[in-house]
């Protein structure tokens, strides 16, 4: 990763693309605190976050999903999302387990919120299904619902369409629009160019750790450096 600069504005759907090994996930890891940059600055709402830990970044309003879906396999859809709600709840997981007095009101609120997020991603009819029994497309939607339950301002989606069929990808695109319409900004890494070109307001292209292009999808599709990066050949970066 070499001197990469970019900006994400509130309300945008922005995509990060590039060949394998270009550094896309490294950027996501640096935005979410899983890796520290050797050099450079990451600001979220003008506050520097590049040295913060993942949970601190989550509490500031950034949530993410992973390439390999990471769910609590033996819990239900609803309980997976409730865990996301607890991360920003006032009572906390430990007090919830000990059933401290304010817990009932808080639990009711968390239940309602969790149901709301499950409905938002279109899994409302699967509230009590065990996560491990869901097909891949629904697993991804569930991971998104859990991330949303932390009430982020910025949602990072790492290859959300990986392993999905075309119907599942179409449902994912609808869900991404719905989430944006609730006021959440979305930044995604994705290999599925159909999805990227359909949903993104702007696209950043990385190659060998360098930004080689940035702009609206229609311009990116025609960019000579981008075409060469994907088809092979010399890059004029």
């Amino acid at each position: 990763m070499d001197n990469v600069n970019f900006k994400v504005y509130q309300g945008q759907i922005k995509a990060l693309i590039g060949p394998n090994g270009a550094g896309k996930t490294t950027i996501f890891n640096m935005l979410s605190g899983f890796e520290k940059p050797t050099k450079g600055v990451v600001k979220f709402k003008e506050r520097r976050i590049e040295k913060l830990k993942p949970h601190q970044i989550t509490s500031l309003g950034i949530a993410r999903t992973f390439q390999n879906t990471q769910l609590f396999e033996e819990l239900t859809v609803l309980d997976n999302v409730k865990i996301g709600c607890h991360l920003k709840g006032q009572v906390g997981i430990l007090r919830a387990m000990l059933h401290f007095p304010p817990i009932e009101k808080e639990e009711q609120k968390i239940h309602e919120e969790a149901v709301h997020y499950v409905n938002l991603v279109g899994l409302g009819d699967k509230l009590n299904v065990i996560a491990g029994e869901l097909p891949q497309g629904e697993r991804r939607l569930l991971e998104i619902a859990r991330a949303l339950a932390t009430e982020p301002e910025l949602l990072l989606l790492d290859e959300p369409a990986a392993g999905l069929n075309s119907a599942e990808t179409e449902k994912l695109a609808e869900t991404i629009y719905k989430i944006r319409d609730t006021g959440v900004t979305i930044f995604l890494v994705e290999h599925d160019m159909g999805l990227v070109m359909e949903v993104s307001d702007e696209v950043i292209v990385l190659n060998y750790g360098r930004k080689i292009a940035e702009g609206p999808p229609l311009l990116i599709q025609k960019d000579e450096n981008v075409i060469q990066a994907y088809l092979g050949g010399k890059i004029n970066a």
Binding site: M1, D2, N3, V4, N5, F6, K7, V8, Y9, Q10, Q12, G23, T26, I27, M30, L31, E35, P37, T38, K39, G40, V41, V42, K43, F44, K45, E46, E153, L154, T185, F187, G209
Partner: peptide
């Protein structure tokens, strides 16, 4: 409103990453 700004973001591979990458390539016969 500007939400995220990345400025001169640089990540150098450390020795451990280089070593594990080399081993991985070797075991794959590349």
């Amino acid at each position: 409103m500007l939400l995220v700004e990345a400025i001169n973001l640089t990540k150098e591979f450390d020795g451990l990453v280089r070593w594990t990458t080399s081993i991985s390539k070797f075991t794959k016969g590349r």
